[in-house]
Design a protein around this nucleic acid. Structure first.
Lengths: 243, 243
DNA sequence: ACAAAAGTGTTCTCGGTACACCCATGC
DNA sequence: GCATGGGTGTACCGAGAACACTTTTGT
């Protein structure tokens, strides 16, 4: 881990170390109690909410910068990030909220301050384990928390659209994404996996064909049985095989 | 059309009017004689080849900037552009060729000249009609020509990768893209449409199932017959219905 | 009449859907 | 033993593949 990552979390950030006008936004998706969750930052004393984001160092790959943002907000490393769109509409440019945020943090930004530029933002989504992630706030924000994707607070700028597009992208790639691998515990029942699919796709899935499809995919391994304590046959447990 | 579009083609460009560090690259795909073509620029007296690209005005949407680039190089308006990826790897940063290009054009760029920065580039592809497009060179290049996608010259930077990714994206979206609508003439035979699909996907397609799939899609209208002059049944002509 | 290429029908196969029945488990 | 819910088998349906047959056209 870089030593200066800590200093960049302080209030005195050397913005010249970053590419101007280009940002990264990350839609980090979790899953808990049959609901999709998204990590959202709340800025100090403003009631403003936004996606976690960051900037690209002058000597850093775009993808690596995204990894860094993800690692900073979740403490997790090596999570697969999926770039899905770059947002560059003019109506993203609304610096007032950011000015207010900075003032609440005791800063008096110049009109041309780094954070008050127009930004084009490349967006990524990542599937992260709800249990393992430890949401960590920004230096401008006082919380980084999971929100149900259906009960998001009002978000700044176009971040609502970004989440919507991330969800569409996830749905399109669900079969490649090995969603169970990262969103569920290591071992899970077929019912749990199907419920996850149903939650993401927001539609019911046929039980037996889903079962067969998953078994035939060759990516699942049956590892044992789960005693549910319920009055019925105990389901098998599965886990993903890397192969 | 903006009047200053002409001046921006001259040698004295006001680079401060553009967002720094962000570029747009366009993979314009055409089709002729059973081959996919891509528009490629050749820079003056350097033997350097690259994709047509451009930059984003300070007061311009990203998508609109891409439209502008496309319009500049083909003369066509209203073509659908598909954003497919943003390239931000560090090994894109190789300013030497651009320095050489500028020198060949009689410019003596400062080390920190706009064009010599590191760029992150958002890439689009567009399907354009080979006949209707009129390739127009850049102010730094002396030609803008169609190249067979399988016989591309050696390209600068990562432009080869960009084309590859554009092709993958096109293949994935081929059924939505209404490729026949833009890549073929207005009316065409089923054979011609299938050959186009086969060219894009680089694999043979079953004749009868392709026929039925297209007819059943409801997006084709049979408009007449074509007399081929050959010794066989003359095929029907089809065209896309908008609906 | 024949060859060539397009249109069209039949059959097969593969997944997904629907539905049934079998199994295990706690009450 | 009965209700509950997961596992699994069978029948059906639709799309694509393979193949054959029909239609049209110029020679």
């Amino acid at each position: 881990m870089n030593k200066d990552q800590h200093t960049s979390e302080g209030k005195e950030v050397d913005w010249t170390g970053f590419l101007p006008g280009i940002a990264i936004d990350c839609v980090m998706v979790g899953y808990n109690e049959k609901q999709l969750k998204v990590l959202i930052l709340e800025y100090k004393e403003t009631g403003f909410f936004a996606l976690p984001g960051g900037f690209i160092r002058r000597n850093e790959n775009l993808d690596v910068a995204a990894q860094r943002v993800l690692q900073k907000r979740t403490g997790l490393e090596g999570i697969q990030l999926n770039q899905f769109h770059t947002f560059g509409s003019l109506n993203r440019y609304a610096p007032e909220p950011m000015r207010k945020i900075m003032k609440k943090n005791g800063l008096q930004p110049a009109e041309d301050h780094f954070l008050l530029q127009r930004f084009v933002s490349t967006a990524y989504y990542a599937l992260v384990n709800f249990e393992q992630a430890e949401p960590i706030a920004d230096f401008l924000s006082d919380s980084c928390r999971w929100y149900d994707i259906n009960q998001l607070p009002k978000l700044l700028w176009d971040h609502r659209d970004i989440i919507q597009k991330a969800l569409e992208s996830l749905r399109k790639n669900i079969d490649d994404a090995a969603v169970g691998l990262t969103l569920l515990d290591e071992e899970y029942t077929m019912r749990e996996l199907r419920t996850l699919y149903e939650t993401i796709l927001d539609k019911e899935i046929n039980r037996s064909s889903f079962h067969r499809k998953m078994v035939n995919s060759g990516r699942l391994e049956r590892v044992g049985k789960k005693s549910t304590g319920k009055a019925h046959r105990s389901p098998y447990l599965y886990k993903f095989v890397s192969n």
